[in-house]
């Protein structure tokens, strides 16, 4: 693995949709899944952890994810080892730390865990074929969507400035999913806390990544929100629930 200081997003073919914004924000990068992920923004670990507990956003766009869609999608995914919840708009944690978000009777998205092994999405991709998966079709969620995470106690207030769905903890429990506009672009919002700190995955149109990041930064300003790297999220997640 290359020395952290030498990792530059543009050195790799797969790049986050907003790597320039992260670089301009002072991010340091680490390699995950063949791409550069912001590991931290130069602050001390304690600082970034405190920020993440209060109000932070992180870019996880280079991490693996894949969608299964079609009338047979849930059955096929289950048959290939994905645990999927019984109702739509709920997400289910997998043994490896991945998340299976059931979006409809006909669609599920599998998000890699913060470890970033990519094992489960990769396995789905290799085991699938158009001839061999009746009614199940893969969706390139990695290309289609940016993937951010918003964390911290102030995040519901921040979301209330740009999203009409009530995402407060009491109303939007862990595992809940809302597919709804956030700052006027359609997104998937998934509540998935990290070690007791409230956290929300946010997936949306990859072409709107810079726009959306700017909206989030604007909305979280009054709460002292800042971007953090995946290191802080991993530390939060490593703590017992």
């Amino acid at each position: 693995m290359a020395d952290a200081s030498t990792i530059r997003p543009a050195d790799r073919p797969r790049r986050s949709y907003l790597y320039r914004v992260l670089e301009a924000g002072g991010a340091n990068f680490m390699e995950i899944n063949g791409a550069a992920v912001a590991s931290d923004f130069g602050g001390t670990a304690g600082d970034e952890l405190a920020t993440a507990r209060g109000m932070a956003i992180a870019d996880l766009s280079p991490l693996s994810r894949i969608g299964c869609k079609g009338s047979g999608a849930l059955d096929w995914a289950r048959a290939h080892g994905v645990t999927i919840g019984g109702s739509n708009n709920t997400a289910h944690l997998q043994p490896g730390g991945e998340l299976a978000a059931r979006l409809a009777d006909t669609e599920v998205v599998v998000l890699d865990g913060l470890k970033g092994t990519g094992a489960l999405p990769h396995r789905i991709e290799t085991e699938w074929s158009l001839d061999g998966a009746d009614g199940c079709y893969l969706v390139n969620r990695q290309g289609a969507n940016f993937w951010f995470m918003a964390t911290g106690a102030h995040a519901p207030e921040m979301f209330a400035k740009i999203c009409a769905v009530d995402l407060r903890q009491a109303k939007f429990p862990a595992g809940a999913i809302a597919q709804t506009p956030v700052a006027r672009t359609n997104c998937i919002v998934i509540r998935a806390d990290l070690g007791g700190v409230p956290a929300w995955h946010l997936l949306g149109d990859s072409a709107s990544a810079e726009y959306q990041w700017g909206c989030l930064a604007d909305a979280m300003g009054e709460f002292g929100g800042r971007p953090v790297g995946i290191d802080a999220l991993r530390r939060l997640g490593a703590r017992p629930e």
């Binding site: 739509n88 708009n89 409809a104 009409a164 769905v165 809302a178 597919q179 709804t180 506009p181």
Partner: peptide
């Protein structure tokens, strides 16, 4: 029916 009550602008 899929997403529950939402603003009609959605």
């Amino acid at each position: 029916p899929l997403n529950g009550p939402r603003n009609i602008s959605e």
